Each structure stands twice: as structure tokens, then as C-alpha cells.
Amino acid sequence: MTGYRGRFAPTPSGALHFGSLIAALASFLDARRAGGHWLLRIEDIDPPRCPPGAADTILRQLEAFGLHWDGPVRWQHGRDEAYEAALERLRSQGLAYPCSCSRKQWRDLPIYPGWCRHGVREPGKPLAWRLRSDKGLRPVTWQDRLFGTQRFDPVELGDVVLKRKDELWAYQLAVVIDDADQGITDVVRGFDLLDNTPWQRQLQHALGLTEPRYLHLPLVMNRDGQKLSKQNLAPALPEEERAVRPLLHRALAMLDQAPPETLALAPAAEQLDWAIAHWDVDRIRPEAARPAAAADMAATYPP
């Protein structure tokens, strides 16, 4: 295998849906085409959002679609020591600070205004920890493999939470630490996470971590123009083979890979073999979202 290390990292807040399949499939094909590793990480750092059995469902769904990962599954729960060590390094650099503010207090503002940067406003209240977006790497630039040169000033995005008031770890810190720990070289994910990258680059820079390459994918929208998501009640991916085959073919088409119609009802393994051999990121149209009409077709699973 090559040095390429990719990953799929779902939150087990529910079953995977068609939008999840697009991200999983693209990251899988990108890794396999490069002759690299494709890892699976279950991002279960928010137990209240993770119903029992959801992670097991995700594993079954991936296997049903032939998306077999390399090595053991990585679980984020139990990684407190690594996250705490990273937070301590940020504190020692003056890049992380405690914050007593609630979302309700700044609900009329576009971003958190940094009220606690120079001292906790309401001592005695539960505290979150935030990243100082005004320090460290600024501006943040990177070359997205689909959307080209990206440039952000993190100050315009605000001071993101690293550890919540309820003592749970926030996504931004955990994902950076685990990507580095697993040696991830390439991140393939949805366009909705593109503006998370500046915070993650700031953290990588502050902690001396390697920057992965990024490929952000167009989002699949439902008929109402909303991103397919669990919150918008996107239907769960099927596990039955007769439903998997045409849906996998639709996913390849949604990724602009132009799979031949003769593969539409072929077994998942046969479709994936073709897709790995023909995977071409340059085929993907650089759009933030796919038209609703295409998503309607994709979201309606075979009976």
C-alpha cells in the first residue's frame, strides 16, 4: 500500500442515509484508487446524541454496500487523555480560554464576540473552553482538491468551543487530534464542513500537527432544498442486497463518475471494482449542492 491514509468518521446519532453514502463512497474510492488505507472512526464523543445500536447499524450498512475498512474501528469515547493533553498545550500558549457565556446571551450576534477572552464574565457558572481565533495562524489558506484555493480569517468565524460546559469534548478538537493520531493524509467530506477547516488548521498549526489534504464534496439536497440529514428525516440506507445495488449505482452517478447502465443491478463488489479503476476527482462538478431533482431520485429507495 501507499502512504495514503483516508477515513470515514460518522457520528452514531442515527443510521446512515444517502448523503452519508456519498461521503463514505467518495472517501473509500479515493483511498482505494491511491492504493492506500481507508479507516473507520466512530465519533461518539456526544453520548446524549448517540442512541443505543446506532453504531452497529452504521457498521452493517457499510458492509452491505461493500465498503470494508482497514484495521480495527477507532472509537472516540475513552480518548479523554489525548484531548486533555492537547487542550493543556493550547492553554499554555494562551490560545484557549474558559468561557461562562451561553448561546442565549449572544443570540442576536452572528458569532460569539469573545466576551471571556480576558477573564470569565460570570465566575461560578459552568465553563466551556474556547479557541482564540484572533491568535495563531491567520489567515488560513489551503488548496481544496475540488473547490480550489480557500482563504479564511478565523476571526470572522468566531471562537469555537473545544470543550463543552457539560465536560464533553467538542468536534473541532477531537477530529484534529484523532486525524493526527491515525496518520490521516487525506480528508474527504461534505461541503458543509468546509468552513470548519480554518479552525482545524489553526489547531493543527498550534499543536505542530501535519495538515491533511482536503476534498470537500457537493451536498445532496432534498426536494425542499435542504441538505439530506438525520435532522431532516432522510431515510436510512437499506441493508438488503436488492436495494443496495441500484442505490450504489445512483451514488456513483451523483459523484459524476458516469457508471455504465449495465452495472445498475450488479453486485456491490462488481460496481466498486469498476469504480475504483475509474475513480476521477476531476469528473466531479464543483458545486456546493446538487439540484433537488437529482436528490429526489436518490432519496427514494427501491421498495
Rank of each mutant, 00 (worst) to 15 (best):
P267H: 00
I58R: 13
R245F: 04
F18S: 14
L109T: 06
R41P: 14
H216K: 01
P246L: 09
R213V: 12
D70G: 09
I184E: 09
R107L: 11
L219A: 10
S229D: 12
L265R: 12
Y171G: 11
G158C: 03
H216F: 08
L237S: 13
E261V: 09
L127H: 03
D280Y: 11
Q231V: 08
G19F: 02
I284Q: 06
A234P: 11
P235E: 02
E122S: 13
A264N: 04
L127A: 04
E63P: 12
T11K: 09
P212I: 09
L146Y: 08
R201H: 14
L157G: 10
G119L: 02
G14M: 01
G71T: 06
A54C: 03
P212A: 04
G3E: 13
L252D: 02
K125Y: 11
P303Y: 03
L193F: 15
P126K: 08
A288C: 00
A54N: 01
E122W: 13
A236Q: 00
K230N: 05
R145C: 10
R138Q: 11
G208N: 09
E239V: 15
V140S: 07
G124T: 06
A277S: 15
E239F: 00
F191L: 03
T141G: 09
W69E: 03
D46T: 07
D280P: 13
L59I: 10
Y214S: 02
L62F: 14
G114F: 07
R91W: 10
P10Y: 10
D159E: 05
E88D: 14
V175W: 03
H17V: 03
E241W: 05
L90I: 01
G66S: 08
R60H: 14
E261S: 12
I111D: 00
L21W: 06
G208I: 10
A292E: 15
N232G: 03
D56R: 07
T210K: 05
R33V: 00
G208H: 09
L263Q: 12
L193H: 15
E156W: 00
A64Y: 07
V175T: 11
Q105V: 02
A24S: 07
